[in-house]
Design a protein around this nucleic acid. Structure first.
Lengths: 260, 260
DNA sequence: ACATGAACATACTGTAGAGTATGTTGTCAA
DNA sequence: TTGACAACATACTCTACAGTATGTTCATGT
């Protein structure tokens, strides 16, 4: 149970911390914890570990059906630890939400300014989006829930500040796609009627894996890549493109300057 | 608040009762209730009214964040009435779930056996699906939640019987689409790689309105029809169809034999 | 015309879980 | 080395409901 293949998230054991804050540059490798209690400087790692557990729980039963005790149990801990890092369940949720947004933002960013025809840029961005969605599925699921909660005006409230900020982030993300769509149409490469409906349909397609994707332990990175490629293909076709060449993405934007 | 345009659900005031049972053939028009208490034979209507309120609440906050008191309040009633008709919150949810499934099943059924090329049958079925989704949005949202709960093994349990039945229904529905897809491909009209991914993508598109559609009070039936047509267009394009002629659907399968 | 039971409303109980208060263990700076 | 504080664990409180028990109103068969 709870198996995890290599390409899936396990950010508390990786070098990528999206929260900034102290401890963000630590622990390149997972060190077996010596003591029961963690060092002060690792608070960033601790928060990320909590968020991963929370994301998995939220994904499984949704926000309100998830108890803090369950989140704690999932990472072999207790309430105390969670409430030491987060003031409330809502704050934890919002942090997962924001982190998920940051992840996918950073995933597509390298491809937004490429010197390519708009359609090809679109292809690249969509591909990057889908790959990120698959890798960080629990987080993106929480993002979906968050968007839904905004839409329905639900939400524990009280943290309207962070909420509004996240809403603006979401809009900014969406706007990037709107822009590329308009450019691609101007270049005569794609076609749609109502751009909002078109964009929504594209999003439904490329976010599909959030709902229907189930990791199989025998599938390789290439399998995942093919799967993502197919999602992109359908999303692009939907816009009236008949040309079938694959998306152009770098193997993986590498942050480490280390030599292989 | 809580405005409702003509084409939206209000089944307790319509002749269509999907639960069978006594009272299913009653009350063609909404009669202002004379008394505080309802007639015995109207239990079917009462249940449908409860289900509508429940569907709206479930759609707004999800299953576990919805309280029975809230559902009751929404229809200007109290807990007592809900628990008189349903043994538990889970049973209520499942009834909404099943009713939603029945609705969309009945919506597409008339088009499944049409003597047409598979693509055109597909077009008709998709169109009928989208139109139904829009008209019965809260119910279809609950269906989505139900499918999710099945997927994650969540669910109040105890009612495994009804649960398994609903799962089979869902599969049967999906199978209809699988069949049409295979036929259309055999006829050389559409194209896909992995049929599961293709089908999932199609479903994401045509179920999109469950998520992003918001009823505007100035939009007419024709507006809705155009919107649905556009959704179908994208879903069809996604399968490699370039031909743009619209779906062929009867105005609305009419159950009443009455003269206009 | 009355008795029975359906269709509710009202009043209560029990509990899960969010949040808190406090105790315990280790770190680290001086 | 020690004391102050971060990082937790443990034990508690308090409230929002799910579910129940009971009371009230009316319809309907006899």
């Amino acid at each position: 149970m709870n198996r995890k293949t290599a390409w899936q998230i396990s950010f508390h054991a990786s070098a990528e911390l999206h929260n900034g804050g102290p401890g963000a540059h630590r622990a390149m490798t997972t060190v077996a914890r010596s003591s029961r209690y963690r060092r002060q400087s690792d608070t960033g790692l601790s928060r990320m570990e909590i968020m991963e557990g929370a994301a998995l729980c939220f994904e499984a039963h949704g926000y309100s059906a998830t108890s803090i005790d369950e989140v704690a149990a999932r990472i072999g801990s207790t309430k105390g630890r969670v409430y030491h890092h987060y003031a409330s369940k809502a704050e934890l949720f919002l942090d997962v939400y924001r982190t998920g947004m940051t992840m996918i933002f950073e995933a597509i960013e390298p491809y937004l300014e490429a010197e390519l025809p708009a359609v090809d840029r679109l292809r690249s961005v969509l591909k990057a989006h889908v790959l990120c969605v698959i890798r960080t599925k629990p987080f993106q699921n929480v993002v979906s829930q968050g968007v839904d909660m905004l839409r329905h005006g639900t939400m524990p409230a009280k943290e309207h500040a962070e909420l509004a900020h996240l809403a603006r982030l979401r809009d900014a993300y969406s706007d990037h796609f709107l822009t590329v769509l308009e450019q691609a149409r101007a270049e005569g490469a794609i076609d749609y009627r109502n751009i909002k409906i078109a964009l929504n349909s594209v999003f439904m397609c490329i976010n599909g894996p959030i709902v229907w994707f189930t990791p199989r332990d025998n599938q390789s990175l290439e399998d995942i890549d093919l799967l993502a490629e197919e999602c992109v293909l359908y999303a692009i076709r939907l816009l009236g493109v008949t040309d079938e060449r694959p998306a152009r993405t770098h193997p993986r934007p590498t942050h480490e300057g280390a030599t292989a």
